[in-house]
Amino acid sequence: MNENNRNWAVDPVLSVEHLTMRFGGLVAVDDLSFDVGRGDITALIGPNGAGKTTVFNCVTGFYKPTEGRIALRREGTVSDAALAELTRGGQQYRRADDGSIFLLERMADFKITEIAGVARTFQNIRLFGGMTALENLLVAQHNELMRASGYTIGGLLGLPGYRRAAEAAKEKAIEWLRRVDLLDRADDPAADLPYGAQRRLEIARALCTNPVLLCLDEPAAGLNPRESAELNTLLKYIRDEHGVSVLLIEHDMGVVMEISDHIVVLDYGKKISDGTASEVRNDPKVIAAYLGVDDEEVEEVERDLDVATAHTPVQGGAL
């Protein structure tokens, strides 16, 4: 990957600008700006408490940021002028022929998923434990099915339109279950699945909402090396075959370095580095932040880090 290949600067699907989030006196995210390229896998990394999950919660609408703009270009390239106009106008989003744009910081969390097309997973898995794997994926298609069922009335009357939509939804769910290798567990309650399977199911569930941007909060946490490798394959498949852009928080450097097209490094709520995997790996500031050392020792540490990343420290799962 060279300097010319900065897709995120050319065609960003998500632009975070001057994002600040304060909780009382604590500044969790401080004037953060970065872009997520369309069709890229972007990793958000940083030491514990750097504010990564807060950024996620702002992007997905669970927190309202104190300041800043989070713009999602769902399709097409929208000019900065149009974006500025939208920001001034006070609307939440704009849909036009030359592309639609959504100002996520103004939208309710469920709207962000429903109309802007951002889906997410959670650090501590949030599946519907008492419902089967299949049901979990059907819940994710709620809005589509709701319309198909004529907002329940048509469904109650058993109209054929709904029955077809329900069949299609089930087909889609089964397709994703097959893709994440959980088809044989389709009728098992989600809480009964092994940990790694739960992580995969949660990703499949998020994908059932037809997102353009998928936000994964530590997808590799608690996975064994084989499962981590499978996750890498899955994420690449999602990016390449479905054109979904992926933004992920991850501590597992093996996963991050292998699959990321773009890495953003946070420390104490500020961006300290932004670039391709090789750029970030060699950034002294990143090494210092991760290992908390003075600049003189950086060179020494750099050597160690190269060794560590090559060996995939799986036990670093943040649990």
Partner: peptide, 21 residues
């Protein structure tokens, strides 16, 4: 129906519901 499934999903986890739109 989707509405009933959403009821049960709500019982299981409200935040996950919101994250699914």
């Amino acid at each position: 129906l989707p509405v009933g499934r959403a009821w049960e999903a709500l019982r299981e986890d409200e935040i996950a519901c919101r994250s699914l739109g």
